[in-house]
Amino acid sequence: MTVQDCAPPHFPRIAACGDTALVVELSDQIDEGSNMRVVALAHDLAAKPIDGVVETVPTYRSLLVVYDPALVRGGLLAKQLRARLAEVPSANGAQRRIVVPVLYGGPVGMDLDQLADMKQMGADTLITLHSAAEYRVYMIGFAPGFAYLGGLPDILHTPRLAVPRQRIEASAIGIGGKQASINSVAGPSGWRFIGRTPLKLFDPARDDPFLLRAGDRVRFRPVEAEEAAALDLASAQGTLAAEWERP
């Protein structure tokens, strides 16, 4: 192994991902600054498209850029992306902020009491800590509309379950390691779940099926069972409007 082999990688780094995509890596760490640049580049490409680019997919620290090789070659696109990166600001301007109502505990939030015991606090204290934080949607993935959230208070960081459960309902509010989450569809999960929201993160019947997108800010608002039931009814009828805050 040479000294060059041990040298740290230089960023940004652009690499081929098959023959129809490039991945633009902005860091080898997960941090808000790198993610803000990823989202800013995605927004910039949407606002000022490059011919041949079909789709972009933001992740924690990189942007997948899917292209049509009949319209643009990968080498030329890489040069265009490097040039674009030099012009893109570190953030994408005003961020959307959403307030997510949460019914904590109950059958879907089956881990609330156990997690509170693990942290040597009451369930009410855990709810207060969880709902007082502001979260950033780092990326959408795993399932359609599934939101990975950064900003979970350190005291609530908790390892995932050793054995995943086979089914967790859609709209469940979870904790996994250093992250928080909102389930979009029902499915297996090893995360720990402390509540649920009447909001649907993924609804193919909506004009925009995905409620959240990378870069959004999220706050959780605790609700009682009566309000949750009313919100559930509105959600089932398709009349539940998301509560967006002004930046």
Rank of each mutant, 00 (worst) to 15 (best):
Ile127Phe: 03
Val72Ser: 06
Asp207Ala: 14
Ala42Gly: 09
Glu224Phe: 02
Ser62Gly: 01
Val66Lys: 07
Gly33Pro: 02
Ala180Gln: 08
Glu134Asp: 08
Ile168Tyr: 06
Phe210Pro: 03
Gly145Tyr: 09
Ile14Thr: 00
Asp117Leu: 15
Arg217Met: 09
Val65His: 06
Ala42Lys: 01
Leu112Asn: 04
Gly106Phe: 07
Glu226Gln: 14
Pro222Asn: 14
His43Leu: 05
His130Thr: 02
Gly75Tyr: 02
Leu240Cys: 10
Ser181Thr: 06
Val163Gln: 15
Thr59Asn: 02
Ile155Thr: 12
Gly33Glu: 14
Ile50Asp: 06
Met121His: 06
Ala147Phe: 01
Asn92Met: 07
Ile182Trp: 01
Arg167Val: 05
Leu115Ser: 00
Ile50Met: 06
Pro69Trp: 08
Pro69Asp: 13
Asp51Glu: 15
Gly215Asn: 04
Val66Phe: 04
Glu169Val: 12
Ile182Ser: 00
Glu243Pro: 08
Gln95Pro: 01
Ser27Cys: 10
Val24Gly: 01
Asp19Phe: 00
Ser27Val: 02
Gly93Glu: 10
Phe202His: 09
Glu245Arg: 14
Arg82Tyr: 14
Met118Ile: 03
Asp68Arg: 08
Val218Thr: 01
Ser27Met: 03
Glu87Val: 15
Ala16Thr: 07
Val185Ala: 09
Asp207Arg: 15
Ala230Cys: 13
Gln80Gly: 06
Arg206Asp: 13
Leu201Ile: 10
Ala143Val: 03
Gly52Gln: 08
Gly195Tyr: 09
Val100Gln: 04
Gly151Ala: 01
Leu152Ser: 05
Ile50Ala: 11
Val218Asn: 09
Pro247Met: 10
Pro198Asn: 09
Asp31Trp: 00
Ser189Met: 07
Asp51Cys: 12
Pro164Tyr: 11
Gly106Met: 04
Ala234Phe: 05
Ala70Gln: 13
Lys119Cys: 05
Val53Lys: 03
Ala180Phe: 01
Tyr135Pro: 03
Ala214Val: 01
Ala47Pro: 14
Gly33Lys: 11
Asp28Ala: 13
Asp208Met: 03
Glu169Tyr: 13
Val3Leu: 15
Ala236Gln: 15
Leu85Gln: 10
Met110Gly: 13
Pro101Ile: 02
Gly190His: 08
Ala214Asp: 02
Pro204Ser: 11
Asp111Ser: 11
Arg96Leu: 02
Leu129Met: 09
Lys178Pro: 13
Trp191Asp: 10
Ala70Asn: 08
Asp208Arg: 14
Leu77Asp: 04
